[in-house]
Nucleic acid binder design. Structure first.
Lengths: 191, 191
DNA sequence: CGTGGAGTTGAATACGATCAACACCGGTGG
DNA sequence: CCACCGGTGTTGATCGTATTCAACTCCACG
């Protein structure tokens, strides 16, 4: 079974896994269920065993802007808030019925205390996250909506199929109508 | 003197600092000097003691898009490439005559091997970097050019004064003309 | 069946890009 | 000292891309 224990290679050290397991709680959530709301003061990380979550921000007009999707095997958390004990900026909810592991933030600190050699692993994950965000910023600054959509298809072909198009539009930073038009053009030209 | 040795609290451990110092080289660079070009295979990190650097990407049409500024006390590096030994995506050059410390990437690995627990603040730095990028992505998706500019002024008042406006425009993802217009409006209305 | 959300299409609009002209320095060399 | 020049920033006209608003279709689901 896919689990954060695999992700962080904890099965190699069962006694450690046991001591950490109290900070990890498995839950099933229904499609649409909200795990975290903007302003929440207790912020967790979520590891997705099955299903799909998303995080998003709400602007002044109440419009959603999807920050990331998290299908199976992904972790999702509000890194802008969680590690700094700030109230959440992002909302997190379920796009499908999902099975998740809720990881309390303080667990990470504890984990690093016990197993310092795991620092490298945490750093590697963070570096990859920064790399993804770096690319996304540059795409948002320099590429047209169509280019960003084509890149999204290439990068996340699995996600394209399973989430509604209006959410992909939201992730790309455009309206559903604009994405629909782009898809229309692509279908006409490229077939 | 401002140095990466302060930044990473290495003076507390002089013998370690000594063993690492061979991987750190101090240089002075002139305004306009290029430290890293797109495609470079050897990618370093740069710590700014004095002056100001920037990193930017070039799109297909050769247009610059500034990814970040690095005034005194900042580190700048191509995190999308450096830790993964990929050719550089970003260019890095000097906006002012600057004094910098060049840090070889493998130094971090070495450091991590020797003293993993000392990397707690490495993780903290990365978390902050992710937080900054998270906010920037959301701003690019949800805020108008004017809102992004106002936010930039609030967040980086020191940078506003010292870099040319066309570069701030580039950072914001708009043209110099658009920024000029926005500033004109703001001067007229708010004064 | 109906009903509501998702997606498409089209018309009108807004925002920022592009292009061009010009003012304003800050150097540089005569 | 001044004339010249290139780079920076401003302003205005025009264009293009994406937004907004509205109408319609199509399913999925009650």
């Amino acid at each position: 079974m896919l689990s954060i224990f695999d992700e962080f290679k904890l099965y190699e050290q069962p006694e450690l896994a046991k001591s950490l397991s109290e900070g990890i709680q498995t839950r099933t959530v229904r499609k649409g269920q909200v795990l975290q709301q903007k302003g929440d003061t207790i912020v967790n990380s979520y590891f997705v065993r099955k299903g799909c979550l998303r995080s998003y921000s709400l602007d002044q007009k109440g419009k959603e802007h999807i920050f990331m999707f998290a299908p199976e095997g992904w972790m999702i958390t509000d890194i802008g808030s969680a590690p700094f004990n700030q109230p959440a900026d992002l909302c997190i909810d379920a796009l499908e019925d999902s099975e998740i592991e809720v990881v309390q933030m303080r667990l990470f600190e504890k984990f690093l205390d016990i197993r310092p050699e795991a620092f490298g692993f945490g750093i590697e994950k963070l570096l990859k996250r920064v790399a993804v965000l770096q690319k996304r910023v540059i795409m948002l600054m320099s590429a047209s909506a169509k280019e960003r959509y084509e890149d999204f298809i290439k990068t996340y072909p699995n996600i394209v199929q399973r989430v509604p198009q209006k959410m992909i539009a939201s992730y790309l930073g455009i309206t559903p109508e604009a994405l629909s038009t782009i898809r229309g053009e692509m279908a006409r030209n490229g077939l």
